[in-house]
Design a binder for these strands. Structure first.
Lengths: 214, 214
DNA sequence: TCGACCATCGGGACTTACCCTGATGGCACC
DNA sequence: GGTGCCATCAGGGTAAGTCCCGATGGTCGA
């Protein structure tokens, strides 16, 4: 049996979801806790340690992200499925970022909801069809691109120095870390700026940030 | 019926997958094309325009990413489900980044594979349980956090100067752009560093880069 | 063996960043 | 009508970055 906690500020919604989860045929889902606020939810989850938490995104005293943060802080490892009327990108991203393994809208049908709970319980990722697209878009858009042609012009040592420069280390620090003199660091830094056609380490920091080399 | 193209360099694997997809009960899947190389795959997909492409990650003359790039370039909008023996993070991320909507390993069972194809066809995201975790981890780690509490401590003007500092502009440049004196820029910069507890503009650049404020 | 490239240093000069103290006027809140 | 916060600016100082000039030794390939 999959033990589920139900978090939603409307008792009616909770009742509806509970019905769908428990009364469908061959259901292996059991609702072991319910709550309507962030505070109550954290309490209930910590106490009952469910396998899966089905959680509304917007609650009277906070969001699903607050609930997740609260229970993670207390060492609970339940998996979270966010359930919301909202399909706004910011809501979705915020909750996913907090650690939810799935996000479905309330337009979902009963059997699909049971299925979603099962999949989340298995560690799988579940999204409503409409959401899958831009979640993956956001995902792929935020990964570093592998090829940086200008970077090949730098020698190995120069790249090493470049990375430390981009991270904001002072020459003195870089010299210490690489066990070389400040003057050598200056030489490499100079070569880096010249080859990348930049005029200061500050432009270099921006350059590196754009290419996600930090 | 869901029209599917099957890309894998081993005919035996293709036969096995085809069997699983077409011969399971109530199957609504139809294999309309097959190929074993990147070149053949692009040809076959462009010709048959399947709903879903089930594609091995490693092919003799390239990868699934190459196939996706090739057909997208030709205006085909089929959805891709990557199928591989590999569960290496780099493989997964590379393929997802190219636009695949799902990634499952070959350890998947027949009915689950049919289900995965259906879900991808619906625009949903599908991952093998083991993969869902770190795909989402990579995803969330690469999204900007909406709330930057320390940022609220900065006044509007200080934030403005901070952004320009992070972009690598010299004080002189910032002064010119904001039509104020260098000394004023220094004041704001000083306040920014103090409030963010940073010791130099170079650390600030790294700080801003991490929070994607550039 | 010689030349090309690289990593390693040094001296010196100039510019820039950063900090400190202190000042002015504007604006809002009580 | 203070009191505080903000934006604006100044002088003067230390530290750091940037760029010149140069030098040495190592490796690798023609």
């Amino acid at each position: 049996m999959i033990r589920v906690a139900l978090i939603d500020d409307h008792a009616l919604v909770r009742a509806g979801v509970r019905g769908e989860l428990e009364e469908s045929e061959n259901s292996d889902v059991e609702v072991v806790a319910e709550a309507g606020t962030v505070a109550d939810a954290i309490d209930a989850i910590v106490r009952s340690k469910p396998d899966v938490v089905v959680c509304d995104v917007h609650l009277p005293d906070g969001t699903a992200a607050d609930v997740i943060a609260g229970v993670v802080e207390r060492g609970v490892t339940s998996r979270f499925l966010a359930l919301s009327v909202s399909d706004a990108a910011t809501d979705v991203i915020h909750v996913i970022r907090s650690g939810a393994r799935g996000y479905v809208t309330k337009a979902i049908e009963g059997p699909d909801l049971v299925n979603a709970v099962r999949r989340v319980n298995d560690g799988d990722a579940v999204f409503s069809p409409r959401l899958a697209g831009f979640v993956l878009d956001a995902f792929s858009a935020n990964l570093e691109s592998p090829g940086n042609p200008e970077l090949d012009e730098l020698t190995a040592r120069e790249q090493e120095v470049m990375r430390l420069l981009a991270r904001g280390y002072a020459y003195k620090e870089i010299a210490r870390r690489l066990s070389i003199s400040i003057k050598t660091v200056e030489s490499h830094a100079s070569a880096v700026l010249r080859k990348l056609q930049l005029s200061s380490r500050n432009e270099l920091a921006a350059w590196a940030a754009n290419r996600k080399l930090v």
